[in-house]
């Protein structure tokens, strides 16, 4: 009943294959990151000044909170759309599944700017969305310049990052388990809640982590579709760097964002831990 795993040696030997990637990461990621963090504590004079400034700045804090809130809403909306979508993908035939995959990957094939301008046109005053709502009797729906407008556009681009891990997890669920639950006396909703949902959790957690973290760092979409009054962290960092040339201050704000991201990842990891362990725990099938 003990698991037979590949011996440790070949794996250790394969480590040098990671060298090129590690080198690139070191130069283009860790070096700049270290520079920014260093400057955030070293300039204009050494000390926690920049951080105290950020934490004491009501505007900056409000921006951080707004960013977290927006990312949370985007993640929730994406999950609500992606879950049934991914579920449907596991039920249909191969060809329909291919088509559904194509549809969800569409945002990847349009350039970032083209996509955002398309949303700009759709969401603007007198645009398609406003007229569509007006046609069913709801007037004055202008998404442009609102958090809702930003959310809609960001959800679209985030969908594949949620759908793909969900679908991956769902394809691994034996549908016979639902039959088994039914025969044991569970009505469909119970079978879903007690069996299907927990088994799809690894997909939910990885989709949620990716979407939440990516949403924290969005820059162009909120800049174009939102308003400066409702700016998100990435825009504020951009303003500090580009307009105010405040590199240390931007670095401090960036570090705050990084810490929040790491905390979220750690929390999700704690939730994912037990779920994953119970399903893969112990040995392989004997």
């Amino acid at each position: 009943m003990t698991a037979i795993r590949p011996a440790g040696k070949p794996r250790a030997r394969a480590h040098w294959l990671l060298l090129p990637a590690a080198a690139v990461l070191l130069v283009v990621f860790f070096y700049p990151l270290a520079t920014i963090l260093w400057r955030s504590i070293a300039e204009p004079e050494f000390g926690p000044g920049n951080y105290l400034a950020v934490l004491g700045d009501a505007v900056a804090l409000r921006v951080v909170l707004r960013t977290l809130g927006t990312a949370l809403i985007i993640t929730a909306v994406t999950l609500l759309i992606a879950y049934p979508y991914a579920y449907a993908m596991t039920l249909v035939g191969r060809r329909a599944r291919g088509l559904l995959t194509l549809l969800v990957l569409m945002p990847f094939w349009t350039s970032l700017m083209a996509r955002n301008f398309a949303w700009y046109v759709l969401e603007q005053r007198g645009g398609v969305i406003e007229r569509a709502f007006a046609a069913i009797g709801i007037h004055g729906v202008t998404l442009l310049g609102s958090v809702a407008g930003v959310t809609v556009a960001m959800v679209q681009v985030m969908l594949p990052f949620m759908v793909l891990p969900l679908q991956n997890a769902m394809l691994g669920i034996d549908r016979g388990l639902l039959h088994a639950a039914g025969s044991l006396g569970a009505p469909r909703p119970t079978a879903f809640l007690r069996i299907y949902l927990p088994l799809s959790m690894p997909g939910v957690l990885s989709g949620v982590s990716v979407v939440f973290i990516m949403s924290l760092g969005f820059y162009i979409t909120p800049a174009l579709l939102g308003t400066p009054q409702q700016a998100l962290v990435a825009q504020v960092i951009g303003t500090r760097v580009n307009d105010l040339l405040d590199f240390p201050g931007a670095g401090a704000l960036g570090a705050v964002l990084l810490v929040i991201t790491l905390v979220v990842l750690a929390l999700l990891g704690r939730v994912a831990g037990p779920v994953g362990a119970s399903m893969t725990g112990g040995g392989d099938r004997g």
Binding site: G176, P198, S278
Partner: peptide, 15 residues
């Protein structure tokens, strides 16, 4: 239906 079913692939709930 109050019937018990045993499947070829066991169909135990893995979690």
């Amino acid at each position: 239906r109050d019937l018990g079913v045993v499947f070829q692939q066991y169909a135990l709930f893995p979690h």
